[in-house]
Amino acid sequence: MQLFFQHLINALQWGSFYALIALGYSMVYGILMLFNFAHGDIFMVGAYIGFGVATALAALAALSALALPNWVILVLTILIAMYLTSFVGMLVERIGYRPLREAPRASAAITGLMIGIILETGNLAILGAQRIRFPSLIKTQVYDIGGVVVTNKKIMIVVVSLVLMLALNEFIKRTRWGMAMRAMAFDYVVIPLMGVPLNTIASLTFALGSALAAAAGILFAVAYPVLDPYIGITYGWKAFVAAILGGRGSVKGACLAGFLLGFIEIFVGAYLSSSLRDLIAYSIILLILVFRPHGFFGEPHSAKLRL
């Protein structure tokens, strides 16, 4: 039983990354009906920006120019990196997708792949191929609760992820911007005729998705502090699976499916076979999609996709 709870805790942490990244895929699809295939790499860029901010702040603190405790540095890192990465997202939208808005969807998808490759190789060119160690800002505390081992980092990761998801939900439900996004998701051809600016909403969507991806990137780097330019591919694609599984365009679905994906991966690895983990895990997901082709919360008609 202890073992089961231990795996459950591991899965909660692992699922929160997928959920946060899947949100970005899902929102963009919900509003613009396109898959932003560069999203995984925005997650990677977010982690690297976080590394830059954290290193700079830690250096300032060490010089006692700005005496900050480490947890404040971490909070600031997350906020600043989210802010900066949202501009990367908006830039990707402006350069890569806006000129192609009337083009076939396949063109936009290919643009996304290319932007992703540019971000990866650009990073390789600027920072070189060496792995980077993310500074350990908070000291790991290990708590043993009745045989189940939890660290302060794990708790922080899960809590911060849940807070961000709830915040996004509230933003979409309660603000005027959120209302505009929901309207746009309903029909992005007619709604602009009623005075809602499509370009602004598109930028906003990319900004929000990228900010969440940046938060995921930093939390990922806290848990797995070895960064390389290709982390975006592996986890980005898996999160994309979560977005599909949740139902394209559904925020609630993306969160749930992200966690579900984490659970399936961890439990398959733990109880069936760690070497066949992905094979079995993704076969299960394929099976779910056979019976629910639109995912958990997706709707059959694409015109009615809602946030």
Binding site: Q13, V226, E265, I266, S274
Partner: peptide, 20 residues
């Protein structure tokens, strides 16, 4: 005798089994 595949970053399920 636990395994993973290249590029994995999370080894928690394997390590939990190893510890137990």
């Amino acid at each position: 005798f636990e395994s993973f595949t290249t590029k994995d970053a999370d080894f928690s399920s394997q390590l939990t089994n190893i510890i137990s």
